[in-house]
Simulated assay, not measured.
Amino acid sequence: MPFTVCTWNINSVRLREGLVARLLEEEAPDILCLQECKSPVEKIPSFGALGYSHMIARGQKGYNGVAILSKTPIREVSALDHADLGHARHVSAQTEDGVVIHNYYVPAGGDVPDREVNEKFGQKLDYLTAMRDAFRAERPERSILVGDLNIAPREDDVWSHKQLLKVVSHTPVEVAQLGETQEAGAWVDVTRRNIPEGKLYSWWSYRAKDWDAADKGRRLDHIWASPDIAGAAHGSRVLRAARGWEKPSDHAPVFATFDL
């Protein structure tokens, strides 16, 4: 049976409850993974009335937070604290068909790409290292990894490769670290498998007066799959229009459908 997965950094699920509801009503993904919920789990709004009566989440007051919403029953598999940061940045769940969904919110890394002067950048690299080591220790099978990974790896994942080489999210060290993490799990970037060519973004800064016209975006939000099911993925897309909704997140939802 085909099912559709959506990932979205919502930038406060309570503040943008209405936008989540709109997405669920208009797009109706089978599973919605949210990042940067910025809420304790008990205060995350319920979307049961829209058919999403199953949720697995990890939360923090005002920061981080990840949640998996599903139309059908899911069971929690893990909630990993990579690099021992004490942050709510990961949760995974298994569907009734045995597919494991990993939902990640990788640290943004601050403004300066130097761990000697910027602790947050060091935390980001350490987090990715811990992810890599976890996948090396246990190679994922029948698994999907989604989330705000806070790195735009390809030259066409950013509006200007040359101008962003020294900007956090596109520096060579981050791209290399993400590549090692992806390789460790033999993960397939299904978005780029389905959309192999051309500029593709999922994030546009709030700082732009007209984000759409400026179009200085980055592809920070990803959907990966383990090799055994990656070939079943199709229909990948970014819902760019959601970036233009009223009081939006600075991220747009990313979708993929799997025929499994």
Rank of each mutant, 00 (worst) to 15 (best):
V188Q: 14
R14W: 04
D228T: 08
P153F: 01
Q177S: 11
L19H: 12
V190T: 10
K166N: 12
S202P: 00
T181R: 00
G235N: 08
D114E: 09
A137W: 01
H251G: 05
D84P: 08
N11S: 10
E116M: 00
P172C: 06
G65S: 10
D148G: 07
K199F: 02
R139G: 02
D221T: 06
T191H: 10
L19K: 09
A57G: 13
G147I: 03
Q94L: 13
D97R: 03
A88Q: 01
H234R: 09
P113F: 03
A28K: 13
W245C: 00
L145D: 13
A93F: 01
S169Y: 04
E76H: 11
V5F: 10
T257C: 12
S92P: 07
A49H: 14
G179I: 05
P153D: 00
A230H: 07
A152H: 04
G185P: 09
K124H: 00
I56G: 04
E174H: 11
I44D: 08
L69F: 14
H251C: 06
A242F: 11
R115L: 02
D189E: 05
S39H: 02
S78G: 09
R218I: 07
R16G: 02
W224F: 06
C6G: 04
R89N: 05
A252I: 08
T72M: 01
W187A: 06
I195P: 00
A184C: 05
L69S: 08
S46M: 15
K216S: 05
G122T: 03
R192Y: 02
L24H: 13
I229G: 14
P107N: 14
W203A: 09
Y206M: 09
W187V: 03
L200D: 02
V99R: 12
A83V: 06
K38P: 00
W211D: 02
D156K: 04
K43C: 08
A130M: 07
V117R: 03
I144V: 08
V66G: 12
P248C: 15
P248A: 14
L85R: 11
A252G: 01
A67D: 14
E25A: 12
V41Q: 13
L32Q: 01
V175P: 03
N9Q: 07
V175F: 01
P29T: 10
G198Y: 01
V91Q: 02
Y63R: 11
R58C: 13
F121V: 06
V41D: 14
A225F: 00
W204V: 09
H222Y: 00
D148M: 04
E96N: 12
L85D: 09
H170Q: 12
L200W: 00
V146I: 02
L24C: 12
A176H: 04
